[in-house]
Design a protein around this nucleic acid. Structure first.
Length: 476
RNA sequence: GCCCCCUUCGUCUAUCGGUUAGGACGCCAGGUUUUCAACCUGGAAAGAGGAGUUCGAUUCUCCUAGGGGGUGCCA
């Protein structure tokens, strides 16, 4: 019987939930779900000054939107401070930690000197074995961890492989600040242990931390978790993610019209692969995801590929589901109108034709604008060109045929138009484009038969009539 | 400066010593077509450089270069 897998996502609420964090959460979620384990959430808010309520909300909301559900209540790290302090004091009592009275100035000088001499930087351990009686008055000490000075610390990382650190390069880190609050390095170890975390999957910016944490685990006599440090995500230019490209909050991706399932698919393939497979349903991801498939190199964020994937997911989505997504999205779009019940129904009716052509929900929404346009329609310049003399003649001719239709069905509409084109000796395009212009005000739309069908007899004929009415004043 | 990690088409990646180095996005050309997409066919496009190990290296080792991360009383 193997122990149940428990993973966690542990963001610090000092900013928004960015794309790299989402991927880390996704990997942890996938791994837990794959093994029938738990995926826990821990808010690392030990830095009280920089943590905000808004950031916490954004993180939770972002994970919900991505449909990465977590088990149990989130743990707020700062609420566990007394336990962290208790562990630090235990280390102190066991002689595995000590009080250090260095001032910030002293520390800065120490670093500077080490650098100047080409030595590894860091605290030199000057209070490690000093008599506490020599403590200067008026200084609140920090508690430092007595890190091993000889030998090496080895991390058997599931992604990076065996990584070895010389202990001499790892200094005595601070466990408790001079104000008595615990630091991150102590808190993670204690919380991961207490929460029973078995696998720590996180960004490789934590790789060095893993070594320090391993030392703390050892000092405490605790079993460290399995580590898997995944490579970071870079911007399209290979540099660190900045606001200009990927480092947007996850809600920005929602507002750009991406589907959570598309984002999940894109993100899982960024740094992880399963042969040549590109498309993964959530079930497949859970089944196939594994640590050995994770790449070691950093990946660049590519909007084009995300967009292609998003288009795929939109095309394959249910019409109802897309309506739901749009209803959720509209309030976040600038000057988006409130649709009536009837308009939503119209939109759903048009969805099969619309979803084939959109890469994002925003695009989908814009391409649906003709449905709700007010008569008489405004023509784009290109559309107006199709309503020249010849175009209007074709339009007038086909209008007659359409008016005669008994049943306004897709089949009847198509037959009527094809018949008219044939009888008038016109290529279908010569009829379709003027129709498209009259009905949508543009030159791009779903199939013209669809457009007529979706718009309905009355509205269609009225829009056509609008363009036929002013005989001498072509608009645009 | 010091420590750690990384390096296959423009991008994401496959390959786990022997392949015409494969796929996907993007790009180009063609097809299909009522527009635009979608779709189909074809094309250009890669092992950072240098030493080894080996009958044979993209694959293993080392060096160099380049990139990234860390180096806090941040997380």
């Amino acid at each position: 019987m193997s122990e149940p897998v428990i993973t966690r996502f542990a963001p610090s609420p000092t900013g928004f939930l960015h794309i790299g964090g989402v991927r880390t959460a996704l990997f942890n979620w996938l791994y837990a779900r794959k093994h029938g384990g738990q995926f826990r959430l821990r808010i690392e808010d030990t830095d009280r000054a920089r943590s905000t309520e808004a950031a916490i909300d954004a993180i939770l909301e972002g994970l919900r939107w991505m449909q990465l559900d977590w088990d149990d209540e989130p743990v707020f790290q700062h609420s566990r401070a007394s336990r962290h302090i208790e562990v630090a004091e235990r280390l102190l009592a066991e002689g595995k930690a000590y009080r250090c009275y260095c001032t910030p100035e002293e520390l800065a000088q120490m670093r500077e000197q080490a650098r100047a001499e080409g030595r590894p930087p860091g605290y030199d351990g000057r209070w490690r074995d000093r008599d506490p009686a020599s403590a200067p008055a008026g200084i609140d000490p920090v508690i430092r961890f007595k890190a091993p000075r000889q030998g090496e610390t080895v991390i058997e990382d599931q992604v990076q492989g065996k990584v070895t650190f010389a202990n001499a390069a790892l200094d005595d880190l601070v466990l408790l600040r001079s104000d008595g609050t615990p630091t991150y390095m102590l808190s993670v170890v204690v919380d991961d242990h207490d929460m029973g975390i078995t696998h720590v999957i996180r960004g490789d910016d934590h790789l060095t931390n893993a070594a320090r944490q391993a030392q703390i685990y050892a000092a405490l006599g605790w079993q460290p978790p399995v580590f898997a440090h995944i490579p970071l995500i870079h911007g399209p230019d290979g540099a660190k993610l900045s606001k200009r490209h990927g480092a947007l909050g996850i809600e920005a991706y929602r507002d750009m019209g991406y589907l959570p399932e598309a984002l999940r698919n894109y993100l899982v393939r960024l740094g992880w692969s399963h042969g040549d497979q590109e498309i993964f349903s959530t079930e497949e991801m859970i089944e196939l995801f594994d640590l050995p498939g994770i790449n070691k190199a950093a990946a660049r964020f590519d909007f084009k590929k995300l967009e292609a994937l998003n288009g795929h997911y939109i095309r394959h989505a249910e019409d109802r589901a897309l309506i739901g997504h749009l209803q959720a999205l509209l309030p976040h779009l600038p000057d988006a109108p409130q649709l009536t019940q009837a308009q939503w129904q119209l939109l759903e009716k048009a969805m099969p034709g619309l979803k084939e052509r959109a890469k994002t929900l925003v695009e989908l929404w814009h391409s649906a604008a003709f449905l709700f346009a007010k008569r008489p329609l405004e023509m784009t310049p290109k559309a107006a060109k199709w309503l020249d003399e010849a175009g209007r003649a074709a339009l007038a001719g086909v209008a007659v045929a359409l008016r005669e239709l008994q049943d306004w069905t897709l089949e009847n509409i198509e037959t009527a138009i094809r018949n008219y084109a044939e009888q008038a000796d016109l290529k279908l395009g010569k009829v379709a484009q003027p129709l498209r212009a009259a009905l949508t005000g543009t030159t791009v739309s779903p199939s013209i038969f669809d457009v007529l069908h979706v718009l309905g007899r009355e509205e269609s004929l009225a829009r056509i009539a609008d363009q036929l009415a002013p005989p001498q004043q072509p608009q645009g």
